[in-house]
Each structure stands twice: as structure tokens, then as C-alpha cells.
Amino acid sequence: MKSTLRILAVTLLGLAGWQAVVTWGELPRFILPGPRLVFTTLWTSRALIAEHAVVTAIEVLLGLGLGAAAGFASAIALAASPLARSLLRPMLVFSQAIPVFALAPILTLWLGYGLWSKVAMALLIIYFPVTSAFFDALMRTPRGWLELAHVMNAMPGRILWRIRVPAAMPGFASGLRLAAVYAPIGAIIGEWVGASQGLGYLMLLANGRAKIDLMFAALIVLAVLTLVLHAAVDTACRRLWDG
């Protein structure tokens, strides 16, 4: 309750500061619109913004789901097999040397202007953090548990699935929390490079037509979308793995 009040107070203060800059700085509305104008636009253009927000949300959710699944599977393959580790690990690190942003035009070329090039961007941007967080956790199973399993004459596959994987789930969860924040970035970059729908597309369009109020309104919706997604992932992870 106290923290909610504090967040509310900080938000109001920020909005007041923003309005003050606009009012006293006499900035034209196509450079920086005031909060009142932005919220008015948000309300009057709600149908338009919602239509595009749904598209972005679908891209983000698909990218998050597929990226998390790919990261989960890769981390397990890496943890289970020393051969996979020696072959894939350098590739994984090398892939991180390529900025994902630079791949966006190629993905658009390969996958078209539709949904899938954005899903692929979101997937690529979250793949490494998820894989890396989960893999690190898989390699850090407390030694006592592994020794107990050894004395119990456990089968190696069972040690992986019944001890190492469950013990590493908090690591997977921290990867997912990061992914929830990164996935929207991927989708928006994808939309900037080439799209006919989505919040990123709407922002570019509004910018081009000097409708900066609409651009800010779309930006606010995007931020709220990201916050909600992060909170949902966080809650789900805590329910499932942190007790």
C-alpha cells in the first residue's frame, strides 16, 4: 500500500514536471506535447491504438513462448552433453557478437512483412538471456544432491530431469523475467524495419505525420504492455518455483 502510494506520487510529480516544461518552455506540440494532450489523444484514438497494440502483443507473446522454449531446450542439451557444450558454446557466444538489430532487415526479407519476422526478432533477442541463465543454473546443482544421487545409484537421465532441472528452475525464471522486458523491444524493432501493423509501425507513422501526441500515446501503451507482461511472468514464476 505504502509503495503504491509512493509510485503514484512519483508518477504525478513526473507528469507535473513534464507539463511544466511544456508550459513554461513554450515548446511547440510537434516537438513535445504535454501530458494532457497525450492522454486526450490516447482516449480519442483508443480504437486505433488498441488495434495495433493487439498485433504487437501477439508478436511479443509468440516470441516469448517460442524463445523460452528454445532457450529451455538448448540449455538442457548443453548441460546434458559435453559434446554439445564444446560445439555449441562458442557459436552461442559468437551469435551474441552480432547485434540482433542488424538482423532485422534480413529477417524481414526472409520471413516477409507479416507477423513472423517480428516473432523471430523477439525470439532471437530473448534466446540468449534465457539459455544462459538456465544453463548456468543447470551447471550449479548443489554437489551434495548429486552425490546423494550417485550413492543411490541413480540413472544419469533421471539425475538431469529429477534433480538438476527442478533445482535450476529459479535460474530459468530469472531468464524469463529478463525475457519479458526484452521481447517487446524485439517486436518493435521488427515493426520499425517493415510492417503494416503494430505499435512500432504506428509510432513511425505518427512521427512521419508530426502527430507526436499519438506517438507518445502509443509509447505509453507499449510501456504499460511491457510492465504488465513482466508482472505476469514474475507472478507466474514465483507461484511455480519460489514456493
Binding site: L148, A149, M152, N153, A154, M155, R158, I159, R162, I163
Partner: peptide, 8 residues
């Protein structure tokens, strides 16, 4: 019952 499950 961990042992039995780890041994299948």
C-alpha cells in the same frame, strides 16, 4: 522415495 525414482 527419491532413490527408487532415481533408479527408475
Amino acid at each position: 522415495t527419491l532413490g527408487t525414482r532415481l533408479r527408475g
